[in-house]
Simulated scan of single mutants.
Amino acid sequence: MSSGPAGHVARSTVRPRGETGGRSPVRTFLRTADGVTIDAVYDPGATADDAAASPGSGPAFVIAHGFTGDADRPHVRRIAAAFARHGAVVTFSFRGHGASGGRSTVGDREVLDLAAAVAWARGLGHTRVVTVGFSMGGSVVLRHAALYGTGAGREHAARTDAVVSVSAPARWYYRGTAPMRRLHWLVTRPAGRLVGRYGFRTRIHPRQWAPVPLSPVEAARRIAPAPLLVVHGDRDGYFPVDHPRMLAEAAGDHGELWLEAGMGHAEHATGDELLGRIARWAAVRGG
């Protein structure tokens, strides 16, 4: 399952599912380049505090959740609320998750979902967009930036100005930890996919990748000139610390690594203080 040609920007069809006026959050369905409907939420956040502020006056954070998450999960809403103190926030459910259509390809075609969300943020008037991904979403933000262009690629409506990858793998097919061996069983076995559907509300595509998508570490090499922040916990049970070090090294001068003492994996392990630091980094580096 290939993610399609780089630069193929998704179109969106807006269908409100809640409050749409004033400064209230807006919920809609986006349509990806390959025709999948993606459930998405826009929160104007801190940019709406000043009545004179325009949407483009502050950054928009587009949050890419981890595998088995979705836009309505409490841990995703907590992440969104933390970033909303610093700017506008777009959250969405990857394909196969929550109310979105399709089936999960576990990081391959999900770049199209993220592209639709970024293009929506720019269509709402935001001139600075920062993508923030966790675990699977952390690998997706890396590949998205490599495929769709970054701060210098002004021809791409789905481009990003800065990238934050939290708890992401550096390479595919990693099975070196017990949690990753369980995840591979969930994805590759029919019984595992049934558990995914009914236990985790995640619909997983049965086909293997063909071709294998660009690896996260190779994507990190192609993100420049946009800045990349790699955040990882030294107690991450899924991916040991050689993964973030490989990503930061691949990014070269445009990469920065925060190895957080005592931190575990992804959204559940990312506290409000760390989220605030990430948002402040993005406000400076993503301008």
Rank of each mutant, 00 (worst) to 15 (best):
S2F: 12
A6L: 02
R11T: 01
R15H: 03
R17S: 04
G18V: 02
T20A: 12
G21S: 11
S24Y: 10
P25K: 00
T28G: 00
T28S: 07
F29K: 03
T32G: 09
A33M: 13
D34N: 03
V36M: 13
T37P: 11
Y42D: 08
Y42I: 06
P44I: 02
P44C: 02
P44S: 02
P44E: 09
G45M: 03
A52Y: 03
P55D: 06
P55A: 00
P55Y: 05
S57L: 07
P59A: 05
A60D: 03
A64E: 10
T68K: 08
T68S: 14
T68W: 15
D72R: 06
V76A: 05
R77F: 04
R77M: 07
I79Q: 15
A81R: 15
A82L: 10
R85L: 13
V89W: 15
V90E: 14
F94C: 03
R95A: 01
H97F: 11
G98D: 06
A99G: 14
G102L: 13
G102E: 07
T105A: 00
R109K: 08
E110P: 12
L112Q: 15
A116C: 12
A119Y: 10
W120K: 08
L124Y: 15
L124E: 14
V132G: 01
G133P: 00
F134P: 08
S139W: 06
V140D: 08
R143Y: 09
R143E: 00
H156K: 08
A157W: 03
T160A: 10
A162F: 14
V163I: 06
S165I: 01
V166A: 04
V166H: 04
R171L: 02
Y174I: 00
R175F: 00
T177K: 00
R181T: 11
R181L: 01
T188H: 11
A191H: 11
L194I: 08
V195L: 15
G199C: 13
G199S: 15
I204P: 09
R207Y: 08
R207C: 06
R207F: 10
A210C: 15
V212G: 14
A220I: 14
A220N: 09
R222F: 04
R222L: 14
G233S: 04
G233T: 04
D234C: 03
P240I: 01
P240H: 02
P240S: 02
V241A: 13
H243A: 01
L247N: 05
A248R: 04
G252L: 03
G255M: 13
W258M: 12
G262C: 11
M263H: 06
A266W: 13
A266R: 07
E267S: 07
G271M: 12
R277V: 02
I278D: 05
I278S: 06
I278R: 12
A279H: 08
R280V: 04
A283G: 15
A283I: 12
G286A: 02
G287F: 10
